[in-house]
Write a protein that binds this DNA or RNA. Structure first.
Lengths: 221, 221, 221, 221
DNA sequence: TATGAATGAGATTTCATTCAT
DNA sequence: CATGAATGAAATCTCATTCAT
């Protein structure tokens, strides 16, 4: 029954092609400026065909979000195994972020999408699914923070879950701000600098007071 | 000739009424979901009448933004006079923010508007004006940070301008995130708690290492 | 009873002021581009006040048309008294036209208005009134043509009434074409040249074959 | 795969249907009085569908204009091959015009459109394209006039380009004037008579003085 | 007389989505 | 599976005109 397999593979390929096209367009013109027509045109498919692969525009956006988040999580989890304690774990997390996300345009795309999704929509259904993407990353961060609280390398008073949420927000905010610049002025280096500064401040703010100052700076690859 | 005065007052009243209606709608449904028609309907006026008071939809949004920002700046500047050094100044700033903004729904509205403004627009004209509102607040924060760097109460290595930008971003991010919750779950207390935690982390991250730990917590009124 | 007289005079003055403003605006931006609001603003009156003096926008346009036509007719009739025969009469008529109208911007205004009035409107009422303005000029031209047919200086086969109508049309067409140029390139000299060429062709076409060729050119003042 | 062919044909048919509907409406109510809504209603399509076939209202008007002009030019050029000299060429041109255009309502439609196009627009871009339609006809006329000047059958002193421009204007003026009559009184015969008279006058005015008088009348088919 | 305020009706255009083939 | 065609609903903005004061 290889034929069914092949069909499935081809279907998957089309899906990905559409997603790639959508990502490229978002990067170029911003989420609100692109229409299903644009995606169809660029993918050299008809609008109707797009609807064969995705239920709605929102579904496309959601999938892009999810894929990127999952990829990051896999990447970060691999690197985290090398962490000796909570403090170094969170440093590794941020270095991963700086290394992985910032180099790739996915970061702009995801932030663009997140900010496009209307705040507090009427139907809670899809929204919950949306947040799921965040939530995975949030859970990862919370785990790392908790480890630091437990082993004494991070300030004991913090609430890992809440701070994890805040950290995700902050990160997105930085990207979003860069994304608002005209495309030509937009620069991965800018983000990296802003993020490095921000993460160092957060690191100092989160570390236990006993932590050695010299450990509180980041050195992204 | 009090008649002219009265007319003027009434006109002002209508303007404000429209702004209030717009704010209420934004709060309720989010910026992208409201149209001039919605505003008109809710204000029990015709669309054309709205255009009598505001040149465009953007003008309404901009005015809301500007008014709130100005009010906050005035409020904060008054309180800042009591600051003895940079560290206490920044604490006062954040306490002001928590006290002033967080209690009022303006915070949601402003964040909603800011995030609605299309990222990286072609014409820089109006956008620059838009950002002006931010810029004022940013300048205020930068001034406070600089004071702290100069008098040794804040970490000397930080760049006041960049960090000011980051701080504004972070603040908006927190609000925005809350705003994305379904209206019913959304809660000023939530924001206050998130912000307080965040600001405390930032405070510890920004303070000079010599600062007394006990000074690094906030107590909003 | 001077008081009533004065009021009447003042009313007349306001009317004229409004008409002048309207003419200036038409000249500047073209009929379709001006609104009652524009007229009111420029006249430093309210829109409602304009409606106290004129029943509608159309009424203003119509009055402008009428006034200009009447002025031209008076001017031309004066000069026509010097005509010795039909051929010289028609030359004088065109020279008058070139001298009077072309020098003054009224020509643009009138043409602009004429072309703005929708062709073949539903209600015949107002339209008939409109054409009245033309008709007066047409009658004048027809009279002159008839004189020429009768005294043998013009081609006997022409139908004075029909040709009069045609001549008015042609004249307007020339002006209209110039009016379509960007205001900066628009030039009274241009019109004069086009009109002179055209009138000379018409003159040759209308003159009896016995007419001396040397009489068939125009020399506008 | 005739299916693609058929689709293409049907698409073309729809386009034409829309153009026909637009033409009928223009004929009936005049260009300024019709909206995209009207066209859609009359074509029993939705407004959005109209936009599927034409980029804008202006595009529809322009296409109507272009099609008619091209058709006329083709028709006239074919007949012009029979011309023995400049004088007979211009006679043939006018006879073609009378025969081709005047019988069809296109003449009203085109004139209506031309007069609708705003005078002296800010952006020269689209306007230039618009005038292209005229220009083609103008060029044809100029060529014919030049031939006549060169072979001595037309008055040598005329400037072919300028006179060509004038002739186009005059022609349009006649049509436009008829179009302003209430639809019921409007009559192709009227135009034909007016145009024939006019063209004969122009012919006499343009012909060299040596031309035989008997050649200076038109006999449209 | 004069006017500020209000508005109904409409114009053009866009877009996510559906459906017959 | 793929698509061309169609559309309803909306969005922003304009304008001649009326009316209460």
């Amino acid at each position: 029954m290889g034929i069914i397999e092949r069909k499935k593979r081809e279907r998957e390929k089309r899906r990905n092609q559409i997603l790639e096209v959508a990502k490229a367009l978002i990067l170029d013109r911003g989420v609100p400026a692109i229409s299903m027509q644009d995606i169809a045109d660029e993918a050299e498919l008809s609008k109707a065909t797009i609807y064969l692969y995705f239920q709605s525009k929102e579904a496309i956006l959601s999938e892009i979000l999810g894929t990127s988040a999952d990829a990051f999580i896999a990447y970060a989890e691999g690197r985290l195994e090398a962490a000796s304690d909570g403090l170094s774990a969170i440093k590794i997390l941020w270095e991963s972020y700086l290394g992985f996300f910032v180099e790739s345009p996915d970061i702009f795309i995801c932030t663009g999408i997140k900010n496009y999704i209307p705040p507090a929509p009427a139907s809670a259904g899809s929204e919950i699914e949306e947040l799921q993407h965040d939530r995975k990353i949030r859970r990862l961060i919370a785990k790392v923070l908790k480890r630091g609280c437990d082993d004494g390398t991070l300030e004991a008073s913090i609430d890992p879950d809440r701070i994890a949420r805040i950290v995700v927000m902050i990160t997105m905010a930085i990207v979003d701000n860069i994304a608002r610049l005209p495309r030509s002025e937009r620069d991965a280096k800018l983000i990296r600098e802003d993020m490095q500064d921000t993460f160092e401040i957060l690191l100092r703010g989160l570390a236990a007071s006993s932590a050695e100052r010299s450990l509180l700076s980041l050195s992204p690859s």
